[in-house]
Design a protein around this nucleic acid. Structure first.
Lengths: 106, 106
DNA sequence: ATTATATATAACCAATTGGTTATATAAGAA
DNA sequence: TTCTTATATAACCAATTGGTTATATATAAT
């Protein structure tokens, strides 16, 4: 199982995910957006890949990274559920409700 | 700021929180529920305290631990917001909606 | 006062993390 | 082919983590 806590447990990794939210990026583009070295970024990407939060595409000498929305969604649901339970939050069930389509905004 | 990812990043700590959900516990009770040593549990509790996810009460020779629901709620909201944004999830705003009281189930 | 119990602390260990610099490899451009 | 660029890998480092055992301290009970 992907460990979402590990994946999101670092602020640099969270910033990388936010970048990818706004569009797929090559490793070079990501490296340039940060003040740390290429190998350091590479390690963060490796962890995000390992936890299946992002995916990689090979295109010539480039590596193109994108969010893996499916597994993010699954991880999100689990966290929502776990912390929601701790808080006796009805949001988790409300969420199911929304997802089943009973509430639509379109 | 409390680091919720650090706090929840370990399965033993998540189990401790689930225990505390069902009622306040002394350190001894927590130790007895796990197969690891008292100092190991102590360290987990120290991290949870540090991140303000739990609170401690001194009662004679006992230490009584309880969930800190306030900071859990804040951390929860932040995570909800952050990951929700990544997913273009309307849940965050829906959540505000619920919290403002426009939806009631009682 | 002694003993038992709950918690705290110290010292240690192996693995992981987040960074570095230096260098190798792969692909594209001149 | 040579040069440049993008990525990968290796070796290193300090700090953190998650565990251990042994021991100290504080409180309560006999």
């Amino acid at each position: 199982m992907p460990d979402i806590y590990r994946a999101l447990g670092d602020p640099t990794r969270r910033r990388i995910l936010s970048m990818l939210k706004r569009g797929n990026k090559t490793q070079k583009e990501i490296v340039e957006a940060f003040a740390i070295s290429q190998p350091a970024i590479k390690k963060h990407l490796a962890i995000l890949l390992e936890e299946k939060i992002i995916a990689q595409e090979f295109q010539g000498k480039y590596r193109i990274y994108r969010l893996n929305l499916d597994s993010l969604q699954i991880a999100y649901n689990e966290m929502l559920q776990y912390i929601g339970d701790l808080l006796d939050n009805q949001l988790a069930s409300l969420k199911d409700y929304v997802e089943k389509g009973e509430i639509r905004d379109e």
